[in-house]
Design a protein around this nucleic acid. Sequence first.
RNA 1: GCCGCGUUGGUCAAGGGGUUAAGACGCCUCCCUUUCACGGAGGAAUCACGGGUUCGAAUCCCGUACGUGGUACCA
Length: 507
Amino acid sequence: MNNKTVRVRFAPSPTGGLHLGGVRTALFNYLFARHNNGVFVLRVEDTDQSRFVSGAEEYIFECLDWCGITPDESVRTGGPHAPYRQSERKTIYHDYAERLLAEGYAYYAFDTPEELERMRTEFKTEQNPVPQYDHKTRGLMRNSLTLSPEQTNQLIQDGVPYVVRIKIPEYETVRFTDMIRGEISYDTGVVDDKVLLKADGMPTYHLAVVVDDYLMQITHAFRGEEWLPSAPVHLLLWKYLGIEQHMPQWAHLPLILKPNGNGKLSKRDGERLGFPVFAMDWKDPKSGETTTGFRESGFLPEAFVNLLAMLGWSSGMEQEIFTLEELVQLFSMERVHKGGAKFDYEKAKWFNHQHIQRAGNERLAELVQPFFQKENIKTDKEYLIKVIALIKERCHLLPDFVEQGRFFFQAPAQPDLEAIRAKWTPEKTDFFQAWIDCLVNLNWEHDALEASFSELAVESNIKKGEVMLPLRIMLVGGKFGPGVFDIALMIGKEETASRIRNILELL
RNA sequence: GCCGCGUUGGUCAAGGGGUUAAGACGCCUCCCUUUCACGGAGGAAUCACGGGUUCGAAUCCCGUACGUGGUACCA
């Protein structure tokens, strides 16, 4: 890449950076950086206004750690372009704002929220329901363009709150090339004079990205498609600052949409439809409510990363299951889609199922243990590993191991007695009684077990098929699970006999 | 309203002038399994619409429709 190190940056917002779309942006940044032996920079957006949610920074790092996409430069790791926290870069942004002000590309605006509101209602028409602060209206507002320099200075000295706005030209066409979409052009006549510096002294995203990307020598900037409309503002800023030649290449990633209905996927959808939209549990410090994450729902991080990668990108091959390292090798911007993708939770679970099959039983045992603990089931590690080997293929999410495996640890609490009673006969009671007695002297291995069962059935003049299902229900509680003799083998001679005996008494 | 971006089965998608238009998820049928899954074999289902260009269009162009994003001192 032009002998220049590829540097990509991720600048998650405290609110938006937390969900699926945000993590995917981070992932694509990471994949592109690694693929090109570049650097993945994380700049933290910590705007100190009411919308800022404390704990978001920690949360983001934990998410990225979980996914295995740790940044090379960040607040945590340090790096040559520190600080990486926006609030610590305040004076830097001011310097750049001054430059724009001095050269007439920006101006001071003293309008109060009420005045802005008045303007919006006053100029509101059917054709223009949302009037903007732009070339059409700025001449009618209270700003350094309409005020004399003396008046402006006086207001500033008097401590009247002000913002700095970019002065967007009236007739100009801004063009740029997006790595995903190709040529894109905007007519500046429809762009408004965006605020660059807020009254509280903090920069808006518009100023911050441009300044940070320049100073941090970012070569490629990827973000969600929702940023496309503000791209012309950023382009103009690069130009006005005279740093155009250092501008990164842009790529606007397609949106992740609601599975049904319309619109961007949001936190609410997860709650409504019963699936996670956050990587990990997220507790909103303000409302105190917790939103369940993919991690806590029982997703493997590699599965989460895999399914995220396939949402808006494809390898072009038939293979769909990839490790992070494979994704790094295969990733290319050319294969990123333009259109938004609807999130499909069923497919997400399928990805997890696939990765569970590929995961080692020992690791699964560790991951699954907390879910057993939650249900107060004590698990011996060695035993649990054997159980996992037996049941993993029928598990899509980690909690499934509890449902599929609990009878290995405890006798079924509510066995499906009806299923047994339906075709029960006294002869069958005798049969099971006899089999329990056989068990005592039996060599405890699969074939011997099954042979004794089959032989006894023949002797008792009972069809083996008629007692197989009852046996299963006695041991398992229901019509599910691995081979019934494998189960008996696992739970042991005593337990097998005891479970049969107990059910027999209930019939 | 205006501006931008997009549109291949229900969903994710390959394919970028000539294909029987891949594959995956989901759904259905059958096989396997004396259970449930897994697995295997099949099946239903698609190029948004209308015009061009072309010998030939899912593919290129133009419209329309629809979707989606933006239109904040949010990101």
